[in-house]
Design a protein around this nucleic acid. Structure first.
Lengths: 195, 195
DNA sequence: ACACAGCTTGACACGGCGTCAAGTTGACAG
DNA sequence: CTGTCAACTTGACGCCGTGTCAAGCTGTGT
């Protein structure tokens, strides 16, 4: 993979990202045009649409430093704090990947690869949730009727992209309101009453 | 619209419903085949795919008596009871329409008509949520930091189809567990602490 | 005997994705 | 200076699913 090759690849990924972010349907030809290359050159770099989308998320992850941001909650002294920090980190990351996420989710039904790629990212988020749950349990604050898994399921679901989409885009909430309410809700969902 | 016409129409709607319910991608030709007619006859009854899907939901609503079921919560004596009854009614309705809902949601991006049809149904659900919120507020139990609208947004989001999908299908929850936890969560989301 | 509604058969256009074959261009090696 | 090779271009094509069009068949009602 020569220098020129890498350069074009980056241009493609950036183009894809920008187009997806600005919404609407995005065709392969749109991306090629925006990247300033022919449609066929696109296929030389990414054999299928799914490949391109997957590569775009990986690229975004690199540029935006997800891992580091999601790991920030590790510094927390308590389970509650860890949960709050995680909600903040992930919740603020969603808008940055929303365009790509949407495209990937739309392909889930029809494309195995897209489905796996998205499931993978969601697994990473779930691990963040699980870590917070674990710490909360260690603090003796986990609601008694919930198992670790069930509690993880709950906050993982609360923090899903469709929920963000609904509250922010359909209901018109501000990002700040979303984060604040999600912190409260996730706590209410899994912390023992009176805890 | 003669008798024969109506009969075929019903066969089509039933076929569409069964296929959508059993999952996977469903093409117009699949529906025609299942209904025992030609693909073209299908287009004589429903000019577009969106039309067919919309008609299928309306048909389901009739057969399944949604309105009546959602209205059941009106009998409630208290806001909390009303909320619980509504969660139960809607939460148990979701699995019955899930197949069609999925198809309709998948078309949201590309088709205006599908988007409107789905938004319409969701509006009906939202009204149910709003009614419960109203009654809870009247009981003096609405969490003080929430407006009526914000509270409605919250439980409406909690009760969304994607959340049901995630908990039941991804996380493997039983329907019973889903309903029970949703009752608890919606309460925790909007009822004043210690209420 | 005729009309007409409801259907069938078979062909076609279109938009996206993905593929194929035959160039062009520019850098670098001998 | 020549040859090679990688990166890219141009233009055509196949596939698939939706939606359209035209012509013909069939049973019922008048």
């Amino acid at each position: 993979m020569s220098r020129q090759n890498q350069k074009t690849r980056d241009r493609i990924l950036t183009a894809a990202w920008q187009l997806l972010e600005s919404g609407g349907t995005v065709r392969m030809s749109d991306i090629a045009k925006k990247a300033g290359i022919s449609r066929q050159a696109l296929y030389l770099h990414f054999p299928t649409r799914a490949d391109l989308l997957v590569a775009t998320t990986r690229h975004l992850d690199l540029v935006k430093n997800v891992d580091e941001r999601l790991a920030a909650s590790r510094a927390a002294a308590s389970g509650r704090e860890r949960l709050a920090l995680f909600v903040e980190a992930w919740g603020n990351y969603i808008p940055e990947i929303y365009g790509v996420a949407r495209a990937l989710m739309a392909m889930e039904d029809s494309d195995e690869e897209a489905r796996n790629a998205w499931a993978d990212r969601m697994r990473a988020v779930r691990e963040g949730c699980a870590a917070a749950v674990m710490m909360i349990e260690a603090d003796g604050l986990l609601a008694p009727h919930l198992s670790r898994d069930t509690a993880t399921d709950l906050i993982w679901t609360l923090l899903s992209v469709p929920n963000w989409e609904r509250l922010r885009l359909n209901c018109g909430w501000s990002q700040q309101a979303y984060i604040a309410e999600m912190k409260r809700l996730t706590e209410a969902a899994i912390i023992a009453p009176g805890g």
